[in-house]
């Protein structure tokens, strides 16, 4: 892989056009732009998409925001759909029906609803079969398109419309599923977890590896949602930084079975710093809820230690 140069990558033509209808300040499209910048110029792509915010906003007839070929099929089958496209590519290449000197790459995007939950089987199948494609989850930790219902990616204690905080409820009961680790256990060539950092180097390098590593690859991108998380739209970069500095969202990759941390905070911040910024955790800061924050911290610590152990082998 070539060295990373922000100026060079920002010079590339946009592959996600403006005019899409995602909310102001949306994290998902920041992530999609970053992933698409990792495509080499001259390479074509077919983009897949699970139903969700991104789909209904980026291809509202007759307006497509995608400069490349694009296919949305349904909510739960982005993995299977793109595996069909990728197989067609191999079939048509084999039979001489496509020009030999033109390359296509296959990238599919799904929210955490379409990826962790309803599309989990389809994703698992596509990864296990080893299609030469990248599945990118833009994880905003709830079903945002239908109005902020909990998913298996939603963090514990989050206030969502199906885990509302009330007299008898502190928000979501369960902790979040660790999907990147689950896909890593499929033993695909490349899995990584990332989010937005100041210079976007981490997400760029991981995207490039995911796209240009032969075989199935998976990227899990933390993509904050200002409406669902309840913070000011302008604060997204601060929130992402707190997510990684508190180790709520560790940055790592699993490259051909080798687990590696790609970012280790100089000083691990307490989880309150991440939670305090978001309205969905407001109830945790009422007097008497200290034990809930302690419980959250304990889970973050346990997972972080577990990851450090995996990366030390």
């Amino acid at each position: 892989m070539a060295g990373y140069n922000l100026k060079e990558v920002m010079n590339k033509p946009e592959r996600l056009s403006a005019g899409h209808r995602m909310c102001a300040g949306c994290g998902a499209t920041i992530g999609i732009r970053a992933v698409l910048r990792a495509l080499h110029e001259g390479d074509h792509a077919v983009i897949g998409n699970a139903t969700g915010c991104l789909e209904v906003s980026s291809f509202m007839y007759p307006y497509t925001a995608w400069e490349d070929s694009y296919i949305h099929n349904a909510f739960e089958n982005a993995g299977a759909t793109l595996s069909g496209v990728e197989t067609a590519y191999r079939a048509l290449k084999k039979r001489g029906r496509l020009p030999e000197n033109e390359n296509f790459k296959f990238i599919t995007f799904g929210g955490d609803g379409g990826t962790y939950d309803i599309g989990f089987q389809s994703l698992s199948g596509a990864m296990e079969r080893g299609h030469d494609m990248v599945y990118v989850c833009y994880d905003n930790g709830a079903y945002m398109n239908t109005g902020i219902q909990r998913s298996s990616a939603t963090p514990q204690f989050a206030d969502t419309t199906t885990t509302p905080v009330g007299k008898m409820s502190n928000g979501k009961v369960q902790t979040r599923k660790d999907l990147a680790a689950i896909i890593a256990e499929h033993h695909v060539p490349y899995v990584a977890q990332t989010t937005f950092t100041k210079d976007f180097k981490d997400i760029h390098i991981k995207s490039e590896k995911a796209i240009y590593t032969e075989g199935a690859a998976f990227l899990n991108v933390l993509a904050p949602c200002p409406r669902g998380w309840r913070y000011e739209t302008s604060e997204i970069m601060k929130i992402c930084q707190l997510a990684i500095d508190t180790c709520y969202w560790p940055m790592f990759e699993v490259d051909h079975g080798n687990w590696r941390l790609t970012y280790e905070p100089k000083k691990k911040l307490p989880i309150e710093d991440f939670l305090r910024e978001q309205g969905r955790f407001k109830h945790l800061f009422k007097p008497g809820c200290e034990d809930l924050i302690a419980q959250f911290q304990e889970e973050v610590d346990r997972r972080w230690e577990d990851l450090l152990f995996r990366c030390s082998r």
Binding site: N11, A18, T29, I30, R33, E232
Partner: peptide
């Protein structure tokens, strides 16, 4: 500033940013 825009409204040419694409900027403030 260029990569943080959800709408790609900060055009970059020859390694330099230009003024905002006001036709599409949604004013998020990131």
């Amino acid at each position: 500033c260029a990569p943080v825009c959800p709408d790609g409204c900060i055009p970059v040419h020859d390694g330099r940013r230009e003024d905002f694409d006001m036709d599409h900027c949604k004013g998020c403030g990131i």
